[in-house]
Nucleic acid binder design. Structure first.
Length: 232
DNA sequence: CTATGATCATGA
DNA sequence: TCATGATCATAG
């Protein structure tokens, strides 16, 4: 027994669901359980807090539901083409944090179109799993809510596309280093790295290579709040 | 180093 | 109070 197996998913493995119905049935079974109960069933330890285990809740739920993509660049449920996201809720029952979607690609992106973009493929079909995230509740006592499947409406897709195209235009122009999180209605671009000293090669405004901080696409809480409301 | 999973911590 | 910018862990 070690003390570093918080995310060891080898102990108990859940097979990938074969259908959406099977996936949703598993979600219904999880709703109303606490993170501690679920971890116990999977024989996993619950960390004291998430400060040094930020992805723990997401990994726990992926294990419980049988996500099979691992850390590969594919949707969590490869066969079903479904991406799973936890939705951390504050004491008011509203989304507490923005949702990370994917890394902003660093190289030539001028010939990419929204329809073929990785971010759109990820957002095409999402399983949202609400989980209590009020820090006054001990991690193991936080409840898992009822998950639901979401596909962007035509309106939502249009706004996501507009945000993405505006942001990508600036990246193509070599302005990625200057993009801040203030831009975009639903989508924003923020740092995404181990720390601010990490650098990757990007394109400067003069078209040459330059070292910049890696960034990622995030969905604003204002947007996921809407999704939660329309879900009911 | 890049992908996955996110939350932390501070300034406005 | 809350969003932005910074940061943490793990796998391959």
């Amino acid at each position: 027994m070690t003390d570093d197996n918080f995310m060891d998913s080898q102990r108990i493995s859940v097979k990938p669901p074969k259908t959406e119905q099977e996936l949703l049935a598993r979600c219904r079974a999880l709703a109303g359980k606490t993170l501690g109960q679920l971890a116990s069933e999977l024989e996993l330890f619950v960390p004291e807090n998430l400060a040094r285990h930020k992805g723990w809740v997401g990994s726990l739920l992926e294990t419980a539901l049988g996500a099979d993509a691992g850390n590969k660049a594919q949707p969590d449920f490869v066969e079903l083409g479904i991406e799973m996201k936890t939705l951390p809720l504050n004491a008011k029952g509203q989304p507490k944090e923005s949702t990370y979607v994917c890394t902003v690609s660093m190289q030539q992106t001028g010939d990419l179109v929204w329809e073929d973009s990785w971010i759109r493929r990820k957002l095409a079909h999402v399983l949202w799993v609400p989980v209590e995230a009020d820090n006054t509740i001990p991690l193991s006592e936080r409840y898992i809510g009822q998950a639901w499947l979401w596909r962007p409406s035509a309106k939502q897709d249009a706004i996501l596309q507009r945000d993405w195209e505006e942001l990508m235009d600036r990246i193509v122009l070599g302005e990625q280093a200057e993009i801040t999180a203030k831009e975009g209605d639903y989508l924003q671009i923020r740092p995404k790295a181990a720390h601010s000293k990490v650098l990757v090669t990007g394109i400067s405004d003069s078209g040459s290579r330059q070292q910049i901080n890696p960034k990622g696409f995030y969905l604003r809480t204002a947007f996921t709040k809407q999704l939660l409301l329309e879900q009911g």
